[in-house]
């Protein structure tokens, strides 16, 4: 079999394009279940914040976050059985330490401010991951961040309801979008 340099160049270009597309779609497919999971958790949590008193909503969030973290762990274990390990726990530890430090430094932080802070933190993470992971993740981060700031600044008492519907909805929709080819 004889292959000319032109044919070799074209084949390599084709391989490169296919590989890039496949790798990006693979990242999307791995990322999607996390978005859908946390979209549901946010819907329940922000829904509770919108409908219940601050004290009652404060009680609803910890079990929801624990449930979400457990689901997160299950997804990671299913996707990468030979990866993660102690590093996975370390991620939550570092994020927890960061959040506690920020809230200590900026205390007193109102429930509304803390309710806006977490989505912004998530949006930032998606923006950073999206730089390498792909445009759709980047867009998800940008949309989530913009919706959070908009809701916090413009919607006053409707902020929690906004986050329950639009914030969690954007996560779920993004998750479904990432699953498409």
């Amino acid at each position: 079999m004889s292959i000319t340099p032109e044919e070799a160049a074209a084949a390599l270009q084709d391989i490169n394009t296919t590989h890039t597309r496949s790798a990006t779609l693979s990242v999307y497919a791995r990322f999607a279940p996390y978005l859908i999971l946390w979209g549901v958790v946010w819907f329940l949590g922000y829904g509770a914040s919108a409908l219940l008193s601050e004290g009652q909503a404060g009680l609803a969030w910890p079990p929801l976050v624990l449930l979400g973290s457990f689901g997160n762990w299950l997804i990671t274990r299913r996707q990468t059985p030979d990866h993660g390990g102690w590093r996975y726990g370390a991620i939550f530890l570092f994020i927890g330490l960061f959040v506690v430090s920020v809230f200590t430094i900026f205390a007193p932080v109102s429930p509304r401010q803390s309710a806006a802070f977490f989505p912004l933190l998530v949006a930032l993470a998606y923006l950073l991951i999206g730089l390498w992971g792909g445009l759709r993740i980047l867009i998800t981060g940008a949309v989530l961040g913009a919706l959070t700031v908009l809701g916090f600044l413009a919607l006053g008492p409707w902020f929690y309801a906004w986050m329950a519907v639009v914030g969690s909805g954007s996560l779920i929709m993004s998750g479904l979008w990432l699953r498409t080819v």
Binding site: D14, I15, T18, H19, S22, A23
Partner: peptide, 9 residues
């Protein structure tokens, strides 16, 4: 070639 490149990723 495309099949192999896709699966190799």
């Amino acid at each position: 070639l495309r099949i192999m490149a896709t699966l190799n990723a």
